[in-house]
Design a protein around this nucleic acid. Sequence first.
DNA 1: CAGTATCCCTCATGATACTG
DNA 2: CAGTATCATGAGGGATACTG
Lengths: 136, 136
Amino acid sequence: MPTQTAAQRRAEARAAYDAYLATCPARELLDRISDKWVTLILNALADGPRRYSDLGRTIAGVSQKMLTQTLRALERDGLVTRSVTPSVPVRVDYELTPLGTSLLPIVRAVKDWAQTHIAEVHAARASYDAPAGEPE
Amino acid sequence: MPTQTAAQRRAEARAAYDAYLATCPARELLDRISDKWVTLILNALADGPRRYSDLGRTIAGVSQKMLTQTLRALERDGLVTRSVTPSVPVRVDYELTPLGTSLLPIVRAVKDWAQTHIAEVHAARASYDAPAGEPE
DNA sequence: CAGTATCCCTCATGATACTG
DNA sequence: CAGTATCATGAGGGATACTG
């Protein structure tokens, strides 16, 4: 294992990784976090740990598969922790890690932007879709 | 033909937007902007107008199809403008609108986060993937 | 130069059913 | 409760060829 500190690794990362490059691993990570389920799940975890079923209820319309799949990916990437309480029935809580917390303000901003500007976007679409000579 | 176009119907947006609700249009918009090509294109337009081929070169690995398709979607959503200069050969410039500019800081943050924290994420993955009893 | 038009295929996602 | 397993669908996206 290298003797580098996290800070040193971060500094190196900034220089070495350019998401514009197709071959760059940052591309893959960018695609990973540019995901609506990721955005919604991280936002849902903003106020502390939450249970699996609780998340499923908050994020209406998410399938069990996508919820589990996304949570596993987030856990693997070190953005959330998964803690099992061996009670009966079993209880599982998910919580943001420091790394996940560092991403939270950003995905929160994404979600907020979508909610705030949707009317403008819809207006733009209506205008774009309207036939050329269409009167206002 | 119906008196109302699909676009007009969409334009009749409802007041309460909550991206957590599955039926909410904000969900669709969230998914739209949570896209790696959107993130990369908006970032590439940060410093002013750029030509089609210029964008294609900057965002290495993007196919013509995805570049055109994403630019069209962004134009329709009112995030970028498309201006054609009828020279020979033709010249097309894309530029952020005020609405697009309002999203820029956010997608920039997403891209920067990916580039900055990729080493940590990779470390987390290695740790997650390692067999349980594996020595450090 | 800046696209458009096809073909084609993989993978992401949803629905459903089952389990410790 | 918190998943896992399986199947089916279709949208995402690349490669290629053509055009004003």
